[in-house]
Design a binder for these strands. Sequence first.
RNA 1: GUAUAUGUAGCUCAGAGGAUAGAGCAACCGCCUCCUAAGCGGUAGGCCGGGGGUUCGACUCCCCCCAUGUACACCA
Length: 603
Amino acid sequence: MNFKLEIAKRISEHLGNVPVSDILPGIEVPPNPEMGDFAFPCFKLSKTLKKSPAIIAEQLSASFANDALLEKAQPAGAYLNFFINKSLYAGEIIKEIIKNGVNYGADNSYSGKRYLVDYSSPNIAKPFHVGHIPTTVIGHALYNVFKFLGCDIISINHLGDWGTQFGKLIVAYKNWGNEADVKKGGVAELMRLYVKFHDEAENNPALNDEARGWLVKMEHGDEEALALWKWFNDISLDEYKNNTYKRLGIDFDYYTGESFYNDKMADVARELKEKNLLKESDGAMIVDLENWGMPPCLILRRDGGTLYPTRDISAALYRKKTFGFDKCLYITCMDQNLHFAQWFKVVELMGNTWAQDLIHIPLGLINFEEGKLSTRKGHVILLDDLLNDAVKKTRDIIEEKNPCLKNKDEIAEMVGMGAVVFSNLYNSRIKDVSFSWERALSFEGESGPYVQYTHARAASILKKASGLCATGAETGGNGESDAQETGSIEASVSPETGGNAAKDFNFSGVDFANLTDEYSREVLSILDAYPQKIKDCAEKFEPFILSRALIELCQAFNKFYNANIVLTEDAAVRNARLALVYCVKTVLEAGLGLLGIKAPDEM
RNA sequence: GUAUAUGUAGCUCAGAGGAUAGAGCAACCGCCUCCUAAGCGGUAGGCCGGGGGUUCGACUCCCCCCAUGUACACCA
């Protein structure tokens, strides 16, 4: 049941002449629980009704005198505060979650839509560094969220697999590398060669010409050059897929990188020329964007070579033709804002109305306390190092706090990843972040491990309870039941309480009147709002909305946990609280899953 | 210079027309014979960058200013 909607309907009915759609957006949750569960400010009605807001609130409150939905509707100045019938509220929310399990909140609001999301897109032959994390984890989270809401979403990794760096790499390989070392060292060795090239080129500029020469050879289909290029690609992509992406639980539907459009860019230039959009300037070919307040978009270099915008336009045309997307999302750093604005405009000028469906989702920049770092000089914080440190620290904490834990390494991996991923999903994506090891490895407070810990707490209660408790029915509806992984209600039988416990809980007889305390109420209110948070997250392309909702849920649940003993003697109270614990655990697991984070049952 | 983003507690950030502006970290004081203390409670900490305007009401919307980041022609 959508409580806001129910209240809006009733207000509309009682007023008689104001449609629900005018009321609903006004319904809010009061800042303080003592003020009620929902509130309706009456200011806006005062014009149309020609009464003071306070009088409207007063009069409306009377119409709610005998409403089973509410305990009371109390006017407070211009506000009308609604106190929900608490057991009804608890029951509706809990039943909804039990019915849907980890799919709670999935409502198909995007079904029938096809979205493309272009994210991560590392440069081949270079290792991931911390600068790659935001686009990678934000893209993945958005991918999951849209899919969850029924969207047919397709992920594309637009790999940087073409360009001058390959000329340099070939030169470096031929001078200072060998097959065995590259096979053994992988991307790290390619990176070493790349850095070596720049060191050497400082004193020997001729190397740069040599590198350009190799790029030209690649462009002309030279066999040796292309074989090396392909080899570097294979090595890099293999490593990305089997290491970084695998650890993060990410895969892409397509790994069509820049080189894929090599033979498609001539068409773009030709079409622009046919449509009289192309103009010569200073030897280069441009599209003039002066009328739109932007510098010109460069399409062809003076030497006829293509440029970044040429390739992106070509890719967009190809994607539209191939996938027929409703929207195509590009998740990159905001330093590319102008670039995207320019070529989006060019696509529009070519007569494509769908240019409005190209959406750049800009991300803030990452700064380093030690100043700007550069891949070319090899001064970077490698993502692998960060992930490994996070896991190692987690492992130490486990050793200290929970030395009896089984699968310590496995759990440390989950929690370490969770810490890194979560911290990159916790703020508005536009915010610049300055990287600090201390913050990156913080496992307290608003952090991934905090959410995972709270989930483990809930799981632990359910596990202990499975021996004590009622009998019952299947609760979830999710297909894959991996007993070892879910540790959910059905899987667990507490050893110390004997083996004949029921396999499952039966929440059908629960008396929700046992969940009317302030702590339960707060948890329920957050659970109630959760589905809307997921939708907001999609609509605004902001995963932090979901991360923050999970943190709020954890804070409320931990307060509840501290104030209320779940496994009490009183079976009625115990069962009701267990139902709530089950719901919290389910939502945390689902929410973390959408963010791309695993939810261990113990840690 | 032009464009754009950001200025909220010591630090990192939520709040984006509505009631007394909230978290986490750091500081200080408490809470484990009790379901995981990676937790919970408390204290302290604010001219919401500045100035105008719109509104019954502005941290929130508009304008101007200040500060900071970023981009701006043949790299991607």
